[in-house]
Computed example of a mutant assay.
Amino acid sequence: MDSRFPTYYLNDRRVLRLPPEHFRLFVLANAWAVSNMTDGAVTREDLYLIPFADESGPEVLVQQGLWAPAPDGWVISDFLKIQTSAAKLEAALENRREADRARQRRKREGDKPLDNQPSRDSHVTVEGKEEAEAEAEAEERLSTKAVPQERKASKEIRPAPVRSSRPLRSFPDCSTPGCDGKLNQQALDAGRDCCADCVWNERVAS
């Protein structure tokens, strides 16, 4: 629900002469009355429920003819000529609620299966269903058996690693007394009879 601010207010001297704070009260009071469905009535107790309202505002609006005094407060002049009445708002809300209820009913009825509506598998006989189930079970058994056989075959086809049959060469022992090292190919090529550790020790000692 929305309040209306007609364009002729821009040419209405009563509205144009209002100070800014009272103009604000006039606009917000219309919106508040529509929202609370008071048909333009503003009681003294409800005055301060309107944002930025003060005690001087109603007197100024009454002087300009935009509000009229009432026994328990004030009434916005020409409210029912411009804004929607509470009765019409309530009727519109009730129509909306009834439309929502009808839409929910249609949705629930659409979700329910009809008794005379054939199912997708109504044309399939009992014998046909049994045959289809038996074929599905047979295919499942074949698929479970085929997997281990394929894995076994893959293991059999895998070639064994090739190892060299060439014997490892044995190098002679170091001739230095107390050393249990071995000569390497480099020592043999150089004509030495001691290992690399003994050569290093001799160089350090010298």
Results as ranks from 00 to 15, higher is better:
159 P>S: 13
136 A>Q: 13
159 P>Q: 12
157 I>W: 12
154 S>F: 06
117 Q>I: 02
129 K>Y: 01
155 K>P: 00
148 P>C: 04
150 E>R: 11
127 E>M: 02
137 E>K: 04
125 T>R: 01
160 A>F: 10
133 E>V: 09
133 E>D: 09
133 E>N: 07
146 A>L: 11
130 E>L: 06
150 E>G: 01
139 E>M: 10
141 R>A: 14
149 Q>C: 00
155 K>I: 11
133 E>G: 00
127 E>Q: 08
149 Q>F: 00
126 V>F: 02
148 P>W: 03
141 R>F: 03
115 D>G: 00
149 Q>Y: 01
126 V>R: 08
137 E>P: 02
153 A>N: 14
141 R>D: 10
147 V>L: 13
116 N>S: 10
139 E>F: 03
112 K>N: 10
136 A>T: 09
150 E>K: 11
148 P>Y: 03
145 K>W: 14
119 S>N: 12
136 A>G: 06
121 D>R: 04
137 E>C: 04
123 H>S: 06
123 H>V: 01
145 K>G: 12
139 E>S: 06
140 E>C: 05
124 V>K: 10
124 V>I: 14
130 E>F: 01
126 V>L: 06
140 E>G: 06
141 R>I: 08
156 E>V: 12
138 A>L: 10
140 E>Q: 10
158 R>V: 03
138 A>S: 07
114 L>P: 01
128 G>A: 09
141 R>V: 10
126 V>H: 04
156 E>M: 13
123 H>F: 07
148 P>H: 05
117 Q>M: 07
126 V>E: 06
119 S>Y: 07
110 G>A: 15
117 Q>T: 11
130 E>A: 08
115 D>M: 00
154 S>G: 09
139 E>V: 08
118 P>M: 06
142 L>M: 11
137 E>S: 09
151 R>S: 02
122 S>L: 01
142 L>Q: 14
146 A>C: 03
146 A>M: 06
110 G>W: 04
153 A>L: 13
157 I>M: 13
133 E>C: 02
122 S>T: 09
139 E>A: 12
